[in-house]
Design a protein around this nucleic acid. Structure first.
Lengths: 215, 215
DNA sequence: AAACAACAGTAACAAAGGGCACAAACCTAA
DNA sequence: TTAGGTTTGTGCCCTTTGTTACTGTTGTTT
């Protein structure tokens, strides 16, 4: 029996959710994409005709206001999908978010009509979609908690911790300006706080990257 | 043919979503509740065994952190349901939110097992649940926008506007302290800002209520 | 009426975070 | 090596929001 590369990866990531006939349909209808880090794969205002299933890598999901101010909402990782995007698909409305690959990423894009069809047809798909919604709602609640209840010091530490986890690299390759955008604050403020964390021996600062020791 | 009060209300609110057999099942399995304003009908840490369908009234949904600081997330109104609660049900996890009736409210409580059963059985139910998720995600995004991008002046105005809309009364019967809790700030700050709005002729302040003129 | 509690107004001060300016370090390309 | 761009460090000051404290007003209870 022949297994394509894609099937192996699908099975590895989703076999606990999806029944074999569903895997077969995904292989047939889905489109494999390999995207390098730093690409915008979805943007605010776009119409969306397919939803992403993450095979590997990480995607950061951003919100933006009228003045172009950004805020990181959460990351998508292996086995996950973007429910906000799904919601837009189902409602045939424009995307509310921007999605940028944080690392090199493999995804399967599934057309929205199939997704609706599978809702009726496959219990595994229904469960998966529901669990995704649950995860996304909870992540959003975490985000709300973070910006409503925590101060910047703590938010920055959480951000750095998460980034190390997602990129699997304790050298964070970001400028202070980039971090400032994600946290919706200014470069000067981030520089200040990072210096404070360095004095606390939690990290070491370098040009263009940060070496995280212990947060 | 006999129509119970509940059936009429269900039909009036949900007939564009639900097919007749589903309405019948809801009548059989659901439990009608009439709750006066100000009651906590769901709290953080509780296990949830049924989900609410709103027939009339309004419920405010709150988030709380470890130190007991509160924040209003959004209101539920006629025809809506709480997806965060639904997500908790499906995942058999504890409630992440607190729900308090803002006005006198009628709801039908549906046991979670039925809800799962209907997902497979009724297209109308699936669509309803999906639209609810979409609405809730969008409301949460609005909430994030509000606390991330707006200053307190604007958030307070939005809050008052929404309150007038939800209660259908331009006399807001709240103390400054209560408003402060919902917006997660202090009473003094709210008093200050309200005074400013009064000077701008947008409202008139009274003891225990606020007369909203034009926001 | 006296006592008390809840509510609201306000001044004074503190803290967090943002903006501006400029200097220094570093990197790259001509 | 020089010129120019990018990145980071830091001092100073401003705005927004939070805190404390005290006052007066109103409504309720005894």
């Amino acid at each position: 029996m022949y297994f394509s590369n894609m099937e192996e990866e699908l099975l590895g990531t989703f076999s606990n959710y999806f029944e074999q006939p569903l895997i077969d349909e995904i292989l047939e209808e889905g489109k494999l994409m390999e995207v390098p880090a730093g690409e915008t794969i979805m943007d605010i205002g776009q119409y969306i005709r397919s939803i992403p299933l993450m095979l590997s890598g990480a995607i950061k999901v951003l919100r933006e206001d009228d003045e172009g101010d950004e805020l990181l909402l959460y990351y998508l990782e292996q086995g996950e999908t973007c429910s906000v995007t799904m919601a837009c698909c189902m409602g045939h409305t424009k995307s509310e978010i921007r999605a940028i690959t944080e690392t090199d990423t493999k995804i399967v894009m599934v057309p929205v009509q199939k997704m609706e069809e599978w809702m009726a047809k496959y219990k595994g798909w229904r469960n998966y979609v529901f669990d995704s919604y649950q995860n996304r709602l909870n992540e959003l609640l975490q985000t709300v908690d973070s910006i409503a209840f925590k101060n910047l010091d703590q938010r920055l530490m959480d951000y750095l911790k998460k980034k190390v986890e997602v990129t699997k690299d304790n050298r964070i390759k970001s400028t202070h300006q980039e971090i400032a955008y994600d946290l919706h604050t200014s470069r000067v403020v981030i520089s200040r706080l990072l210096k404070k964390l360095e004095k606390m021996k939690k990290l070491v600062l370098h040009r263009n990257y940060i070496h995280v020791i212990d947060l």
